[in-house]
Design a protein around this nucleic acid. Structure first.
Lengths: 341, 341
DNA sequence: TTGTATGCGTTATCAA
DNA sequence: TTGATAACGCATACAA
């Protein structure tokens, strides 16, 4: 690393003290306009950039936010990160990014890494189950904003989500309106709030319609395509298979559709499908999936706001759970059930 | 930010000096095995984590890499970043991520931000045109690894790419084999190496087949869907429209296909299409596009290796241009031209 | 309005 | 084998 110009260099050149130059850099008053101008000009000329490490060490505050996500190549997380970027950019914060591959050990490493860097705050889509979350994030010493998988306890934490239960209820009711009764559900891992809440919403909607779902009507997947395929295949083997299935994310929906077609059936003629986050980005999908769209960039933006706000006020008192609106796209993968035609 | 435990605290508790504790933390020798054990146990018990800022300030080296990309929500960049993550993880480096929205001002800000943080190196898909690249990255004071858009000068720089010209030649030759002659090209912005090289490869392949492309046969897009749509529409209005078109990326291909269909034509019956990075991730596309697949994660992995290696040896002498293999997927969007049937 | 002095947490040099 | 001390670059309380 090349030795860059520092306050001392500027001070010596102008025969001033380091403190005066520092004051100009930080736009403080109590500096003679003339000297200020002279200093600014010299700073410009030398392309002075303050050393953030030294500054941080001195002030014990940093302008870096830590981001922890399971999989940065998942478009949903990528868009959230983009939203965070936009949220912090004007305030000149940087983003320290950690990918965990949904591995809890990697997540713990990431937390340590961020703590060592003394980040001002952490925004995280944790892969930890409920019981673990507190143990992991309780002692970070900085504000933590959760999204996607959030602590469900009544404890005060910052979180940004959609109303997952309501979104699923909307989805299921829509299927009911189309005449479906045997509506099954493939959700995510048990203990992840988004998975749990979506399952709860599914159950609420069904019972609300006077339908009592049996235990064979739902399964926990892992948000990956293979689990969608596998579980859907099992559903189809049941004595009385479903006429419609809800899926907790896009990848599992892709797997499920392939399983249905592998069984010689057609979506939505033989079986209806709806899923979370399965909007067609390309406009070239064979099937445009009926889907709940989460406002990913907004989730990032709001998380960033929350995190910066919490970081800037010393007291970590007023925690907030923000709930954003989702969109329900009524596309072509939900039709009336076969028997009703 | 909560006050974490520091070397001094441990030292006081054990009635040792800070230096001894520091030596244990850094696994240096010249420390009594007994005391070492005692110290290690205390470090564990207090969950000691070194302050990377102080360390960096003192040693003038950092374990942070800066990443600059135009758009993190583009799956290609997201996958490259994932590769970088995997490449640096075991060496306990962190990633400082900057999104530029292809805006050169934001890119300059990002560079400054990274320099202030004293990153050990930078991995970048720059949005700068050739002439600008040196001005922007010449004075970073740390190794810079380019991918995607790389300096084409003969100057020694680190870069990781595929052979874009060859990949396009492969694509065009394949179209020629199918009987096409009027093969057009929509490339990226002039001055971006990937765009320029793909255009060059297209030209080489055609002339190699004895076909002399006219100036109306190619256009510079901006890698966005709208430009693919617009330019394709213009191509179709020409007196003698193309029978096949090459596109420099996925988004422009999506736009082009929509333009073709909007004109009442069919891919590939009326017009053949091939593109870069347009592999079907979902397995549910209407059309599986004939495409050049870049090894995105490998690009990230190799970039990380190069960058770390360069950062760890003081001398920035031996620069390298790494060229990785691409894959050509022969899918269904290239057929024989209509007149030959 | 400007300068001097101190310390942030760590590493490194030198002495004990 | 251990400890005292200085320094990294900067911000700031206090003195001038």
């Amino acid at each position: 690393m090349i030795n860059l110009v520092k306050l001392k260099d500027i001070a010596e050149e102008l025969k001033l003290s380091v403190s005066t130059v520092s004051r100009v850099v930080n736009n403080q008053d109590r500096v003679n306009p003339a000297t200020r101008k002279k200093v600014q000009e010299a700073l410009q000329r030398h392309h002075y950039l303050p050393d953030e490490n030294a500054r941080r060490l001195k002030t014990n505050t940093s302008n870096v936010l830590g981001i922890i996500v399971p999989d940065i190549s998942n478009p949903f997380y990528a868009r959230v990160i983009k939203g965070i970027e936009h949220g912090v950019m004007e305030r000149r914060y940087s983003l320290l990014l950690c990918n965990t591959d949904e591995d809890i050990v990697q997540e713990e490493n990431a937390i340590n890494l961020l703590m060592r860097q003394k980040v001002a705050g952490i925004i995280v889509a944790t892969s930890a189950r409920q019981q673990l979350i507190n143990a992991l994030y309780g002692k970070t010493g900085c504000p933590v904003v959760f999204f996607d998988n959030v602590p469900q306890s009544s404890q005060p934490v910052y979180s940004v989500t959609i109303n997952n239960a309501k979104a699923t209820r909307d989805l299921v009711r829509y299927m009911c309106e189309k005449g479906h009764e045997r509506i099954y559900m493939i959700t995510g891992p048990q203990g992840e709030s988004s998975a749990d809440e979506r399952l709860a919403g599914w159950r609420q909607a069904l019972t609300g319609q006077g339908i009592i779902p049996e235990d064979t009507w739902y399964r926990f997947g892992d948000f990956r395509e293979a689990s969608g395929y596998r579980i859907m295949t099992e559903f189809l083997r049941q004595a009385k298979p479903p006429t419609a299935v809800c899926l907790a994310n896009n990848f599992m929906a892709y797997g499920a559709i392939k399983a249905i077609e592998a069984a010689g059936l057609t979506v939505p003629d033989d079986l209806s499908i709806a899923a979370f986050d399965a909007a067609d980005e390309t406009g070239l999908m064979r099937l445009s999936i009926t889907t709940v769209v989460q406002p990913a960039e907004e989730i990032g933006l709001v998380s960033a706001d929350l995190c910066l706000h919490a970081a800037q006020q010393r007291s970590s008192t007023k925690c907030q759970k923000v709930i954003l609106d989702h969109i329900l796209l009524h596309n072509e993968t939900v039709a009336c059930p076969p028997e009703s035609r």
